[in-house]
Amino acid sequence: MFRFRKKIGERWERISLPVEPRSSYVLTGPSRHVWEHSIPPLEQHRYSITLRTLAGEGR
């Protein structure tokens, strides 16, 4: 599962989305800049590669 959350006043709005094994994804717009994102811990190994741009680049 891929979890997203954002603060609205005193509470959190939360959304969970399924992620298929060996999948890739790109976060853009609000999913990258407004929402916090995380993947819950798993019992098996998981590898994650993150590519980012510096703040101000490409915006």
Rank of each mutant, 00 (worst) to 15 (best):
V26I: 10
V19C: 04
P21V: 00
R3I: 07
S38K: 02
V34W: 11
I49E: 08
M1E: 13
T50Y: 01
V26N: 01
Y25R: 00
P40F: 08
W12D: 01
Y47W: 13
R46F: 02
P18D: 01
E13L: 13
W12V: 00
T50H: 06
K7F: 03
Y47M: 10
S38C: 06
L17A: 11
T50S: 07
S24P: 04
R5D: 04
T53L: 15
L42R: 10
E13K: 08
L42E: 13
R22S: 08
E36N: 07
M1K: 10
G58E: 04
R46V: 03
H45W: 10
G29D: 09
P18W: 01
G56R: 00
E57S: 08
L42W: 06
P21T: 06
S31E: 05
K6Q: 08
F2G: 05
S48L: 15
L42D: 11
T28P: 02
I39P: 00
R59C: 13
L51V: 15
S24T: 12
R52I: 03
E20C: 09
E36K: 09
P21L: 01
Y25E: 02
L51D: 03
K7Q: 08
E20Y: 03
M1N: 09
P18L: 00
V19S: 05
R32C: 02
E13G: 00
S48A: 15
S48I: 15
S16P: 03
W12A: 00
R46D: 04
G56V: 01
R59D: 15
E10N: 15
V34F: 13
P40D: 14
G58W: 04
S24K: 06
K7L: 08
L51K: 07
S16I: 10
F2N: 10
F2Y: 06
E13D: 05
I39Q: 02
P41H: 01
W12M: 05
H45F: 12
L51Q: 05
S16K: 10
W12N: 00
P41F: 01
E20M: 10
R11E: 14
K7M: 08
S16T: 14
E13I: 05
I15S: 09
L51C: 11
F4Q: 02
V34R: 14
G56T: 01
I8M: 06
P30K: 15
R22W: 05
H45D: 14
E13A: 10
S31H: 04
R5M: 09
L27I: 03
R14C: 12
